[in-house]
Amino acid sequence: MKVKFLGWIASLAGRREMDVAVETPVQLKEILPFSLRERNIIVIVNNKPGSEETVVKDNDHVTLMPVISGG
């Protein structure tokens, strides 16, 4: 499973993306290197909105994005 970190979330994660082997489906929070609680972060799982409770499995695509304002 691939997780992409966009914008300042890449700094938080210390990387821009992460490959994780997920043998059995788990909640996203189980594999993230930081908590999403009290952070304003957009979670996209397979192009749909999600949360840290979303159950993810191998071959899923997860993107964590900041809420931004535009130029």
């Binding site: 966009l6 914008g7 300042w8 700094s11 938080l12 952070r39 994005m65 535009g70 130029g71």
Partner: peptide, 22 residues
């Protein structure tokens, strides 16, 4: 703020990757 340091690095230019991914 947690996002400050990255904002100073890229400012609104971070939106390019954001928009392309979206």
């Amino acid at each position: 703020k947690e996002s400050y340091e990255f904002w100073i690095r890229q400012g609104t230019m971070m939106a390019l990757e954001w928009a392309n991914e979206s």
